[in-house]
Design a protein around this nucleic acid. Sequence first.
RNA 1: GGGCUUGUGGCUUAGCUUGGACAUAGCGCCGGGCUUCUAACCCGGAUGUCGGGGGUUCAAAUCCCCCCAGGCCCGCCA
Length: 554
Amino acid sequence: MVLTAKEEILDALCRATKLDDIPLTEGGGHADFASTVAFVLAKREKSAPAPIAAEIARSLAKDPTLAGITITATGPYLNFTIGTERLTRALAAALEPGYGALPSKDTRVVLEHTSANPNGPLHVGHIRNSIIGDTLARCFRKAGFPVEVQYYVNDMGRQIAIVVWGLGRATSLPDPNEKPDHYIARVYIAANRALEEDPGLTTAVDSLMQRVEQGDPGVERQFRDAVSRCLAGFSVTLRDLAVPHDRFVWESDFIRNGDTSRIIGQLRHLPGYHVDGKEYLDLREQGFDKEYVIRRSDGTSVYAARDLAYHTWKGRNFDRVIDVLGADHKLIGAQLIATLHLMGEKTPDIVHFEFVSLPEGAMSTRAGTFVSADDLIREVSMRALDEVTTRRPELSEEERTVIARAVARAAIRYDIIRISPDKSTVFNWKEALNFERQSGPYIQYAHARACSILAKAGDWQPTYEIVTTHEVALARHIARFPAVIEETAMTLRPGLLAVYARELADHFNAFYQFEPVLGSEGATRESRITLVRAAQNTLHEALETLGIDALRSM
RNA sequence: GGGCUUGUGGCUUAGCUUGGACAUAGCGCCGGGCUUCUAACCCGGAUGUCGGGGGUUCAAAUCCCCCCAGGCCCGCCA
């Protein structure tokens, strides 16, 4: 509703001002939309902006396409307020399950996220990737796109060779209840320590790497087994966070199926390609100083070559390619894009996120200095269970556990998604364990309150009498939801949805505080129940899109 | 050394792409509100040189330049 209103306003402004590029923004506290176009005209015509704004407002008031939108000139500003009729239409839509979903589109999207190296458990930095990626995937689906989510399994790296070598030495076995990814980390850490103490041992690791690239079946199996054990651990963590993948794509497959060789063959035709022992691409014309090495002098491939093969494959099988990658991949991501561009292949849109560190410094799997996602989930779940037990002692332990798990997931996911990806952060236990405002549980709570009212409401008929300021503010915010889904997907900024959901909870809570629903009578009661249902449904849809369970009771 | 990026009240943070109306909110602090739809809530208050300096503009947190500080990257690793 609001989406089309915005376009209609833009069209009308274009006609009225004869300008192509009209400034039109969210109106904030003033209106639904606002325009500063009068300033532009004032400059051109060398006259005061306020009278121009007034003149435009008068002219737009006669425009039939803007029926139901109130246009006012406040000084030099043009304000547009969506009228009750349009608001009513939006609320009616908001009562329906699936509200906010946009029309289906044909553009097939492949979205890669997480893709952590399988040499130890996912830590609080990795899940920033998972949560950004999963939220975007949910947003794209909501926006009508067919989406396939992929995990790119780096199973050919030196790290994995070190794990395989460490497993072979079998200095310690898994503890009875130890998750396999945590065991792999112990092996990896111990193996690295041994290699540091005796650098001569690295020849064994080098040999493993050569044999796996040559396709030695026994070594290939060892690599696959080690990686699979770690991925089995990841899948538990990702399930706890409600982060699903549609497909796991193994890096080594691009060696085995010949794609990497074919890509290198293709690259040799590029003007900047050089072979002098090693093979590399000169990207200086694209603004990169360093040689982009594609193949080592011993003939083995490097990560970059396999990545080119992977992205070429994605580009040929999907219409749009999106990757979520750590900030450490910015340079190679740019090189990848530049090279794909030279090859005439589709280039990905890459969402980069900055690192999460600990108060004592950077996290490192190799050094064993990290907070695992499993530890975070366990601590937050325990804290959530305490909270639920205090508030709802009458519930069974099973019910409380189910709620606590959902609350924990909400707290973790929201705590991460609300921070802009381009901000590096320091992990903070106090923030992670906070369930108050600006948290996932806060939004869940608003939803549970709405559900509670609806459960007691009995029969009611949709009624639309949006009168009080709290009612209007809530209704307007509900009406914006489809536009927020659209913008989040278009701009690849999941934080927009996070902020929207929190503001929706804010508006609902204010309405809840000041406008009695069940205690009011007649049309007011019906109308407020209608608004509660619209708010509850919109909160539900927004939470689900954030990967957070919309609890009916907590 | 070069590149990318961030710097907003004591702490955390939105806004920056598309310059405009009193800079968003939370935590913490002070003061209120549960015989009334779940107080994981709400209301009020104090707290800001939007890192510093220059520039563009009628107008700059937002655009440009310089400087300072933090993070990341600069491997025939992945």
